[in-house]
Computed example of a mutant assay.
Amino acid sequence: MEIRHLEYFVEVARQKSFSKAATISHVSQSAVSKMIKDLETELGTPLFNRTSKYVQLTDTGIIFLDQAQQLVVMFHNLTPEFENRIKMEKGKISIGLLPITSTTIFAELLGEFKKRYPQIEISLLEYGSKKVASAIQDGTLDAGVICIVPDNHYYDSLSFAKDPLFVIVSSQNPISQLPSIELASLSNESFVLYSNDFSLHDEIINQCRNVGFSPNVIFETSQLELMTQMVAANLGIAFLPSAVCKELDSNRIVSVPLMEPQIIHNMSIVWKRGRSMSHAARLWLQFAKDYFTSNEHFI
């Protein structure tokens, strides 16, 4: 028994005519008659009383019609229902964020996405760039925000912000009076640096060595508040993107543009190349691409 048997049977019962059912089904009357005959043979009972003037359901035909109609409706709804379930705007996304350098830029994106898709759950985990990349690779995270994109053979990425690093110092530090400062001039300062799992940790140390000194790192942290508190207490200096500096207490901490060389803090969304992603994750990535493309002050 095939679905066509049931479809033709239901149509004949509805039209009370083999010829009309054939016309509606776009097949020959003989094809409809054969399908009904095969169905009756398989069931072992007649489904219609046939005369030259009418076609009428038998008692068993009436009983079978109810089940056949349900099956036909279920069959025709199967593909649309399946597609709707796949496309249902629900699900969960796991995203890795940089606890120090992720700014309001990304928060605005998440806020707009949540307004559009309130039923999609977003799980945010704070890691440094290196751990974000590792977690994406092993499938722990769907996507993440990092500063330096790893090997392009394994990741796809979307750059959404380029922001120069500023030196932040206590208002008591003489550097706070300068309009800008060269990196080489910081050789005698104590550094409060990003933890080792941040790509900026390596970037800052390498840039210092390039200009002739190894920085005196007195403390490493992944917490913005702790970093800024140590700077405010004049225990050391630190480096933050200019966008983050705008949110600091200017009475206690002063941000000074870093020059020669200027270190650019790049922010990119990355995800594993070739990985089969959930519909929710694909929705979020497309939303992010559209969001940053439509906002010209990004990138």
Rank of each mutant, 00 (worst) to 15 (best):
residue 134 S to V: 07
residue 123 S to L: 11
residue 113 F to K: 03
residue 115 K to C: 00
residue 113 F to M: 09
residue 131 K to P: 00
residue 111 G to Q: 13
residue 117 Y to N: 08
residue 133 A to G: 14
residue 121 E to P: 00
residue 107 A to N: 14
residue 122 I to G: 02
residue 128 G to A: 11
residue 124 L to Y: 08
residue 130 K to D: 03
residue 126 E to Q: 05
residue 117 Y to F: 15
residue 119 Q to H: 15
residue 137 Q to P: 01
residue 125 L to M: 09
residue 102 S to W: 00
residue 105 I to D: 13
residue 103 T to V: 10
residue 137 Q to E: 13
residue 121 E to K: 14
residue 126 E to H: 07
residue 121 E to W: 01
residue 116 R to C: 07
residue 118 P to E: 06
residue 132 V to T: 15
residue 105 I to S: 14
residue 111 G to N: 15
residue 108 E to M: 04
residue 117 Y to C: 03
residue 120 I to M: 01
residue 117 Y to L: 07
residue 114 K to G: 02
residue 130 K to P: 04
residue 110 L to T: 11
residue 136 I to W: 07
residue 106 F to L: 15
residue 102 S to C: 10
residue 114 K to F: 02
residue 113 F to C: 06
residue 136 I to F: 01
residue 130 K to L: 10
residue 116 R to G: 00
residue 118 P to V: 04
residue 134 S to R: 11
residue 124 L to H: 04
residue 134 S to T: 06
residue 111 G to F: 04
residue 120 I to N: 00
residue 137 Q to A: 10
residue 114 K to W: 06
residue 123 S to N: 11
residue 131 K to M: 09
residue 133 A to F: 05
residue 137 Q to W: 06
residue 124 L to P: 07
residue 118 P to A: 08
residue 112 E to Y: 03
residue 118 P to W: 03
residue 115 K to Q: 04
residue 102 S to G: 02
residue 129 S to K: 10
residue 127 Y to E: 04
residue 113 F to G: 08
residue 115 K to H: 07
residue 125 L to C: 00
residue 126 E to N: 11
residue 119 Q to C: 02
residue 133 A to C: 08
residue 119 Q to T: 12
residue 129 S to H: 05
residue 106 F to R: 07
residue 137 Q to Y: 12
residue 134 S to H: 08
residue 124 L to V: 15
residue 107 A to K: 14
residue 123 S to H: 11
residue 130 K to I: 06
residue 102 S to E: 05
residue 108 E to C: 04
residue 118 P to C: 09
residue 135 A to D: 12
residue 136 I to R: 05
residue 127 Y to N: 09
residue 111 G to P: 01
residue 106 F to K: 09
residue 110 L to N: 04
residue 102 S to L: 10
residue 107 A to G: 06
residue 137 Q to S: 11
residue 134 S to P: 00
residue 129 S to G: 15
residue 103 T to N: 15
residue 105 I to L: 07
residue 121 E to T: 14
residue 137 Q to R: 12
residue 129 S to N: 12
residue 104 T to I: 10
residue 108 E to N: 15
residue 106 F to M: 15
residue 134 S to C: 02
residue 119 Q to Y: 13
residue 105 I to G: 01
residue 102 S to P: 00
residue 135 A to P: 00
residue 134 S to D: 12
residue 108 E to K: 14
residue 126 E to M: 02
residue 106 F to V: 14
residue 115 K to M: 06
residue 103 T to E: 11
residue 116 R to M: 08
residue 123 S to Q: 12
residue 114 K to Y: 05
